[in-house]
Design a protein around this nucleic acid. Structure first.
Lengths: 109, 109
DNA sequence: ATCTATACATAGGCTTTCTATGATTATCGC
DNA sequence: GCGATAATCATAGAAAGCCTATGTATAGAT
């Protein structure tokens, strides 16, 4: 029957950019952070996350560097670029106006 | 570069079901209603709308009947079924919990 | 030793939405 | 009457986005 997405489609980039705006993180950490902060309601699957990060890299909104985690594992840390910060602002305001518009349609009466 | 969608992807069915919950409408009218109520922020393209209506028909959430409009044109009027009303309720609460969860991630701090 | 959790990555598929196109007909301005 | 515009339905094909499944590797716990 086709399960529903774990996310609202179209919001993944925004969620990642916002998460990185709080500080650099590796991919696994981004997913964990989104899951935790959302109260377990949002799950970013690895098959969605890594391609998304590639897109963000390509567009220059994040940059990446290999490092070693506190737990001694190699991981790629992503950092928001200046462009990425700008993009985040734009996506935030677009998102908010979308949500407002949808809210109007969904409200009773 | 790929323009952004006119909608938040994944919300179209919900918008249509909600619109029909206010009364039967034909396709063109559904699109017009969503556009108007959203303050012109949401535009449902015909190439999105009609396939979506086919899906809703297939799933039994709406039914359709040909009629003549006030302006003497033939049009297919869609009506929410009982199942459709149930589905609307489910999608509403899913949507709201998604939005809440996303809001947590997007809020500062 | 084996299992679990951490960590990255890609391929293939499905669903949804968009663009483009096409057809029909009522109404309005000229 | 004629041409333009708006109303109305519909489909095909492409593009995008997310998921499932899979593969690799290693640190730490049992």
């Amino acid at each position: 029957m086709g399960k529903k997405s774990e996310l609202l489609p179209g919001t993944l980039d925004l969620l990642i950019l916002k998460t990185l705006s709080r500080g650099s993180l590796h991919g696994y950490g981004i997913a964990a952070s989104i899951k935790r902060i959302s109260g377990d309601l949002l799950t970013v699957e690895e098959g969605s996350l890594y391609p998304a990060l590639q897109r963000l890299l390509l567009q220059g909104w994040v940059k990446a560097a290999w490092k070693v985690t506190e737990t001694k594992r190699r991981a790629r840390y992503y950092t928001l670029t200046r462009e990425g910060r700008k993009q985040l602002g734009e996506e935030m305001s677009q998102y908010e106006s979308m949500i407002t518009a949808i809210g109007r349609v969904l409200q009773d009466a």
